[in-house]
């Protein structure tokens, strides 16, 4: 498990052994963290929300994925008002639990519901950028193919990487020639794709609360150790 923010690559050196990692590697945070965005109105009113980081720690810039929340005061501002060149106050990256770095090992079983893909995308990008061969599985549930965020990038990533498996579940609408899973992720789909328990995979489940509750319950029923199942409830929580 990672330590505090920024401690992602600590502890790999033997005592007394000279080793000079690149400066950026020393401070590189793990993938899966979030930032707190803070907006302050001229009357002093403040609104703060957390957004997961979609970009890998290797990137020089931060990419956030913002889902529009109806009447959401922060998401509306970010999507409708904010322009290139505007200043934005934020804090982070933050988070030391729902995170993965290549030195954490694997295999990793990533399960996303809707925009819950965001922190998992950061992990997959980090895994690819660092040429890490940790076996990885992404099961991604979306309403329709059009709702799959990052679809092109994910498909390309999986096509050049035999150690990455990609499974989509389309819950509401499927193309006429769709051969993949239709409907919600169920226990049979998980059992059919998840790494065997003996390989001791770590699961990262991110999505809306109901989604996360149901997936986590299924993973426990399939015999995975609850302590290896990390969850993050994601998405609209009022703002």
């Amino acid at each position: 498990m990672a330590g505090r923010p920024g401690a992602g690559s600590r502890g790999r050196n033997e005592p007394g052994q000279e080793h000079h990692p690149a400066a950026d590697e020393l401070v590189r945070p793990p993938a899966g963290q979030h930032v707190d965005v803070r907006l302050t109105a001229s009357n002093g009113y403040r609104a703060e929300r957390s957004y997961s980081i979609a970009s890998p720690p290797e990137d020089g810039r931060l990419t956030l994925t913002v889902e529009r929340v109806r009447d959401g005061e922060v998401s509306s501002y970010l999507l409708d008002e904010l322009r290139v060149g505007d200043d934005l106050e934020f804090r982070g990256p933050i988070g030391g639990y729902f995170v993965w770095s290549r030195n954490h090992g694997g295999p990793i079983c990533l399960i996303a519901g809707g925009t819950g893909i965001t922190p998992l995308m950061a992990m997959l990008r980090h895994r690819e950028k660092s040429s890490d061969a940790t076996p990885a599985l992404l099961i991604y549930s979306a309403r329709s193919l059009a709702d799959v965020v990052y679809r092109k990038e994910l498909d390309a990533m999986a096509s050049r990487d035999d150690d990455l498996r990609l499974v989509y579940a389309l819950t509401r609408e499927q193309p006429s020639d769709w051969l993949g899973h239709c409907g919600r992720i169920d226990e049979a789909l998980l059992a059919g794709h998840c790494f065997p328990r003996e390989q001791n995979p770590t699961s990262f489940v991110c999505g809306p609360t109901d989604f996360v509750e149901s997936i986590a319950r299924m993973l426990v029923r399939l015999g995975f150790d609850p302590l290896t199942i990390k969850t993050e409830r994601f998405g609209p929580s009022g703002g």
Binding site: L39, T40, A41, N43, A47, Y77, E81, D87
Partner: peptide, 10 residues
């Protein structure tokens, strides 16, 4: 920090 352009308390 100054108020971001266009952000109003709702």
């Amino acid at each position: 920090p100054s108020a971001p352009r266009g952000f109003r308390s709702r």
